[in-house]
Design a protein around this nucleic acid. Structure first.
Length: 909
RNA sequence: AGGCCCGUAGCUCAGUUGGUUAGAGCGCUACGUUGACAUCGUAGAGGUCAGCGGUUCAAGUCCGCUCGGGCCUACCA
């Protein structure tokens, strides 16, 4: 179902409420996208700049415009949406700004592949035509991202959607480039860069992945200059890349290596070529590795490049930008691929007797992150950005707390990377991207300007035709680095920028911490003087049920759209949020999603039950104050107490990014406390006679009020279901919100937290459990006696007698202030101050097994009592442990002893 | 080579500044269904918290070492 389909009645904002009966069947597909359209049509998520409320803003990590959302996006989007919805409900001016990234290399590759299928190529059709094709491609796929975010229930403000190549962002990119250039932080120069021979572009250090590969170490002997070919002194150098020897210019040894000190001033003769290679002493050489001699290939190895610089050595390029040998490699090798050249060089060396030996050797080789091909270190002219100063600022921001990494285990990684940062190669030999705003004059000057007009002026030439624009584009991450403020209109001081910048939180996976997060922080601090966000929540990577990384080749990829179709978006969201525990990857098991779909079913049916069974006229109460002074029974006071405690906890957990714990709490509150607890306690009154109801005043109002608040608390995680169900609660109109999206998020009402009633109810629940367990063992006679020495508890039990009998389905329930006589054969137990006696019951079932079980339990108690006695006899414990801890132990001891004696009595019978 | 994370029930994971007899979901066992929900309810089984040592009155939690797994960073030709 397309969310942009205009004909659906859901598009009419006047129809925001719905009144139909709840279907018995829980089926998220019947309402999820209906709500997404209604919210969009009503403009629920569009915000105004400069509102008189606190702002909250999250920038989406822009996905590739032509891409598809994967499960990791679903996780991040869920968490972002959860936070935005939570803040929106707290009355803040909450903006979640969506957008997409042009993703230079990835997108260009896709279009190139398409061209290839058509039998043509990028170079054949030319730059202008290629870019037009790519824009077409972008327009075609652009809607996908929104469709998928809609499926998930994302509450983005689509009126503010941005794209990294749109006009505003392009202007921001040019502005940033020009400023950095004029500050001397961007320079152009000839350096060694990581070159992808497949993509034919430079890539940054980050885009290179080192892989351990099994290779060979070739030992090659070189003749020393002036020595006779027969019997003269030779040296042996070791190399993993024999083909690069064609570009060798020297041989290096460690300055303190006595084995080679005598070679200083001499030279070796490069086999096959005959080039004279002077010996140079350099600290870089590891004396222990190989022979302690290193061949120096200035233009094809980063280390050698540095060595050559130190020693004033020239270099030659023997490998070209497509990975083939150049003319300078010699006529025998020119045109060969790197691999073929290696084979040929080795053959020649062997034939000429220069190959001493070949060893197996595992070593690390840089590979392109994108295509997987081996990266070639090449010397070329590129644009570089000196980020060392910005890195220092970004480092300081984390150290002084202006920027918080969550979890903070990333702090060290942050320090390590920023502390050892090197210049960033920002130019790419691609077409799809932000073309570098630099022009060259005929007389060799470089003009950097915001646009062509300015360039002409600065160059002092007659017109643009006298200038040549640099053909390269910028690294995609250069524009991404500006995302938090370029999306808000920077460099203009727009109302949006003033209202929403700095943004609040960034949520993204930890694998782009350096690619993106660090660069945004550096750029933000540099251009705006402020951290672009005050907290970064770094998620783990989503893996499959067995913890294995998802990949197309393994076929274990889970598509969020499929999961949403099968389980509903709310279940997918709840699952992802509840799995987001800090600092670890996320194993996603569809069974778990099914479990949370069942939770949705529970919510659906609990609401259905409430609506069907509440007394006539019951209403949601906007304020809990409405219940003050009302003579509420213990279950009512208990659930209101639990509600407040839960609200306090959930808000605190959201605040600290513990979405997993918040979800856990919500789940157990709704299912365990509201459904299994309160609704079961409410049934006798709701389903019984008027007399039953009189004992439980306001029960319907309390149930609806708790339900209303529970739904509102759940809304950020399960937006669709909560809206669908909440709309039907009688009395919710008094909240004055047309949609639950804008209803206030429940806050803790500490006045309603009642430890007394919680303790009593805990005793009741525990006693019910024990009675059920005992009755399950003792056959059918359902006569039970309870006793307690506490007058308060006795009064409480008296009030709850009928309820208690119903919950345990008892025929007879007697309550006493004294222990029941032992020795009549009835089993007994004692928990939380309440003694239980099965009256006049004969044991049923397997008596021996029951005695066995009792004995085992008594044994456990014996051990624990002994341990506690020893602890309480230990003077250092009494002296050093805090008072409350000691008191707790004493109380525990008393309880255990009581329980033991009760179980012993039971055993005697 | 350096850094980081993880090792808790059959499985996947929680366990906040050390403080009762270590929890959840799924799975498993038994019982239960005309009454919101079998996408359910009730009761239950299941753990020497990877191992060793240390600090402490007290360690799953803090420290050290070992073993096992994962990730990141790095210019050993």
């Amino acid at each position: 179902m397309s969310p942009t389909e205009p004909t659906n009645p859901g598009d009419d904002p006047a129809l925001l409420t719905l009144q139909s009966e709840m279907d018995k069947r829980f089926d998220p597909s019947t309402y999820e996208q209906v709500w997404q359209r209604r919210w969009a049509a009503a403009g629920v998520f569009a915000v105004e700049a400069a509102a008189d409320r606190p702002s909250f803003c999250i920038m989406i990590p822009p996905p590739n415009v032509t891409g598809k959302l994967h499960i990791g996006h679903a996780l991040q989007s869920t968490l972002q949406d959860l936070l935005v919805r939570w803040h929106r409900m707290r009355g803040e001016n909450a903006l979640w700004l969506p957008g997409t990234d042009h993703a230079g290399i990835a997108t260009q590759l896709m279009v190139e592949r398409q061209l290839e299928k058509e039998g043509t190529s990028r170079k054949a059709i030319g730059r202008a035509a290629f870019l037009e094709r790519t824009w077409e491609w972008k327009r075609e796929y652009h809607g996908n991202i929104r469709t998928q975010l809609d499926l998930l229930g994302a509450s983005c403000d689509w009126t503010r959607e941005r794209f990294t190549l749109d006009e505003g962002l392009s202007q921001a990119v040019r502005e940033a480039f020009v400023r950095l250039y004029r500050e001397g932080l961007i320079t152009r120069g000839e350096y060694m860069v990581n070159w992808s021979p497949v993509l034919e572009t430079a890539v940054s250090d980050l885009e290179v992945e080192t892989k351990t590969v099994q290779g060979k170490l070739y030992h090659v002997s070189y003749l020393i200059e002036g020595e006779p070919a027969e019997g003269g002194e030779r040296i042996t150098v070791a190399t993993t890349r024999p083909e690069t020897m064609l570009g060798d210019m020297a041989v290096a040894f460690h300055p303190e290596d006595e084995r080679y000190a005598h070679l200083l001033g001499k030279a070796a003769i490069l086999p096959l070529i005959g080039r004279r290679l002077p010996f140079v002493p350099d600290e870089m050489v590891d004396r222990e590795f190989g022979t302690g001699l290193v061949k120096i290939t200035p233009f094809h190895d980063p280390n050698d490049f540095e060595v050559a610089k130190r020693h004033g050595l020239a270099g030659i390029s023997v490998i070209d930008k497509t990975g083939r040998m150049t003319a300078e490699a010699g006529a025998d090798f020119a045109g060969l691929t790197r691999e073929d050249a290696r084979t040929k060089v080795v053959e020649r060396l062997r034939a000429l007797g220069h190959l001493v030996k070949v060893e197996e050797h595992t070593h690390n080789v840089g590979h392109s992150q994108r295509g997987g091909e081996a990266i070639e270190p090449l010397v070329s002219t590129q644009w570089f950005c000196d980020v060392s100063g910005m890195a220092g600022q970004a480092l300081a921001a984390v150290q002084d707390g202006r920027l918080r990494l969550v979890p903070d285990t990333w702090d060290k990684t942050w320090e390590h990377w920023l502390g050892s940062i090197r210049p960033w190669c920002i130019s790419r030999q691609l077409w799809w991207g932000h073309q570098i705003p630099a022009w060259y004059t005929a007389d060799g000057r470089t003009i950097v300007a915001l646009d062509e007009e300015e360039a002409v002026r600065l160059a002092g030439v007659a017109g643009a035709e006298e200038l040549t624009r640099d053909p390269d584009v910028l690294d995609t991450w250069f524009s991404s680095a500006l995302w938090p403020f370029s999306t808000l209109g920077w460099p203009e001081q727009t109302a949006d920028l003033r209202t929403f910048y700095p943004t609040s939180v960034l949520i993204t996976a930890h694998d782009i911490l350096f690619f993106w997060v660090a660069r945004m922080v550096m750029a933000g601090l540099h251009f705006t003087g402020e951290v672009p966000f005050s907290a970064v929540h770094l998620t783990g990577l989503v893996r499959d049920a067995d913890g294995v990384k998802m990949s197309k080749t393994k076929g274990n990829v889970l598509d969020p759209a499929d999961l949403i179709t099968e389980y509903g978006a709310d279940a997918v969201r709840f699952t992802l949020a509840s799995l987001d525990s800090p600092g670890r990857d996320i194993p996603l098991n569809p069974e778990q999603i099914a479990g949370y779909r069942a939770f949705g079913n529970k919510i659906w049916n609990a609401t259905r039950f409430a609506l069907a069974r509440i007394p006539e006229g019951a209403q949601v109460r906007v304020s809990l104050d409405d219940f003050r002074g009302a003579d509420l029974a213990a279950p009512e006071r208990w659930i209101l107490s639990r509600l407040s405690a839960t609200a306090a906890e959930v808000n605190a957990k959201f605040e600290s990014f513990r979405f997993d714990e918040a979800c856990n709490r919500l789940y157990h509150f709704f299912w365990g406390e509201l459904c299994d607890g309160y609704i079961e306690l409410a049934k006798p009154a709701l389903l019984g006679t008027d007399a039953d109801r009189k004992l439980r005043p306001r029960i319907g109002d309390v149930l609806l009020t708790v339900l209303d608040r529970a739904l509102r608390m759940l809304h950020p995680v399960m937006p669709f279901l909560t809206e669908e169900v909440w709309q039907r609660l009688p009395g919710r109109e008094a909240i004055h919100a047309d949609t639950i999206c804008l209803a206030p998020y429940p806050q803790a009402d500490l006045a309603w937290i009642d430890e007394g009633v919680e303790g009593q109810m805990a005793a009741l629940f525990e006693t019910v459990t024990r009675v059920r367990a005992l009755l399950a063992e003792t056959g059918r006679e359902r006569k039970v006696g309870l006793w307690t020495a506490s007058p308060v508890l006795e009064a409480f039990l008296g009030q709850q007698q009928a309820l208690f009998a119903t919950l345990c389905r008892l025929e007879v329930l007697e309550i006493s202030s004294r222990a029941w006589p032992t020795g009549d054969g009835g089993p007994e137990d004692l928990v939380l101050g309440i003694g239980i006696k099965i009256l006049g019951a004969k044991r049923g079932g397997d008596e021996a097994a029951e005695r066995q079980k009792l004995l085992k339990e008594i044994e456990k108690l014996d051990a624990e009592i002994e341990r506690t006695l020893a602890q309480l006899a230990d003077e250092s414990f009494l002296a050093k442990a805090p008072g409350p801890v000691v008191e707790k132990r004493r109380a525990a001891l008393a309880q255990m002893e009581d329980r033991r004696s009760s179980l012993r009595s039971s055993l005697v019978g």
